[in-house]
């Protein structure tokens, strides 16, 4: 009997629909489970699936879901260890740095003075400031000068949530009008896209367009190393082409890929389903 994949979701995006379609094509049963309607009580919870795929659009709810399911001994993709690192840009950078995976210079600071010192150490502006938690290119700022830095930090200090008062700084690197996203499943790069945009933020959620990027050896190797550094699983790794070679920018653990299957001619959704089955020894 074919196993059942429990997809833990909130709003269902085109990405989840692609996974459903891929599973149907492979004859794999799927149970859609809306996290928002669940009660995670270990004394009463009924498990009616074989492996869980966490696809919540809310990182916070997804994290609690993964922790809960793992506490019951259920295999969850991605694992709580991987998700906890990838949801936080600072933890991701620390993991990459520890494993000597090429990445951009980074630091976390908690004050304007700390930011100024760091930027001076790096050789000056511009730098990028990001919230440690967040996605889709939201609240990123390219900081070109001290006036801009002062304004952004003051706004965050006055208006921000506690998380927004952690200032994640990253070196700014000029990009050739694009960056690269590799789709890495079980350490293997199944395909990659260029995210093309004239804006310094190339996120497709902000209008960047996707074209196929050949998976050359350097890309496959750095993607595998980056995946390993954060614990592996199903990951989208964002990379920047620099004069010193490829460097990892960020890693996404509930990746969106709807714009990438057509240009890469790759069934990313099919690879996701296969990986879920492999994890429970069913493929």
């Amino acid at each position: 009997m074919k196993p059942t994949i429990g997809i833990f979701h909130s709003t269902i995006r085109t990405d989840e629909k692609l996974i459903l379609k891929a599973a149907e094509k492979k004859g794999v049963k799927v149970k859609l489970i809306d996290i928002r309607n669940e009660t995670f009580d270990p004394q009463t919870y009924t498990v009616n699936f074989d492996v869980a795929l966490e696809r919540s659009v809310s990182t916070t709810k997804g994290m609690y879901c993964t922790d809960f399911l793992e506490s019951l001994g259920i295999k969850v993709i991605n694992s709580s260890a991987t998700s906890r690192i990838c949801e936080d840009k600072f933890l991701t950078s620390l993991s990459l740095y520890k494993e000597k995976v090429p990445t951009l210079k980074f630091a976390a600071v908690f004050s304007l003075e700390g930011a100024i010192n760091t930027i001076n150490n790096w050789g000056g502006f511009p730098v990028v400031i990001k919230p440690p938690l967040g996605s889709w290119g939201r609240l990123l700022a390219k900081v070109n000068d001290i006036d801009c830095l002062e304004a952004i930090i003051e706004h965050k200090e006055v208006l921000g949530s506690p998380q927004q008062k952690v200032f994640y700084l990253q070196e700014y690197v000029e990009k050739p009008g694009r960056d690269i996203r590799s789709f890495v499943i079980g350490g293997k790069t199944v395909c990659a896209i260029y995210r093309n945009s004239s804006h310094w933020i190339t996120n497709t959620a902000l209008g960047g367009n996707a074209t196929n990027c050949p998976v050359i050896k350097e890309l496959a190797e750095i993607s595998k190393s980056a995946s390993g550094a954060v614990g592996g699983g199903i990951l989208a790794i964002d990379l920047i082409e620099t004069k010193d070679g490829l460097k990892v920018n960020e890693i996404n653990h509930t990746m969106e890929f709807k714009n990438s299957e057509v240009p890469t001619k790759t069934s990313i959704s099919g690879a996701i389903v296969d990986y879920c089955l492999q994890q429970i020894g069913e493929l």
């Binding site: 709003t11 938690l133 939201r138 949530s161």
Partner: peptide
């Protein structure tokens, strides 16, 4: 919009929730 329910072939839509700080991939 978000599909709220599907009953007897009738689909009910509601406005999609506003994107929250922790939403993403």
């Amino acid at each position: 919009m978000v599909v709220e329910k599907i009953e007897n072939g009738i689909v009910t839509l509601v406005k999609a929730p506003v994107v929250e700080e922790d939403w993403g991939e």
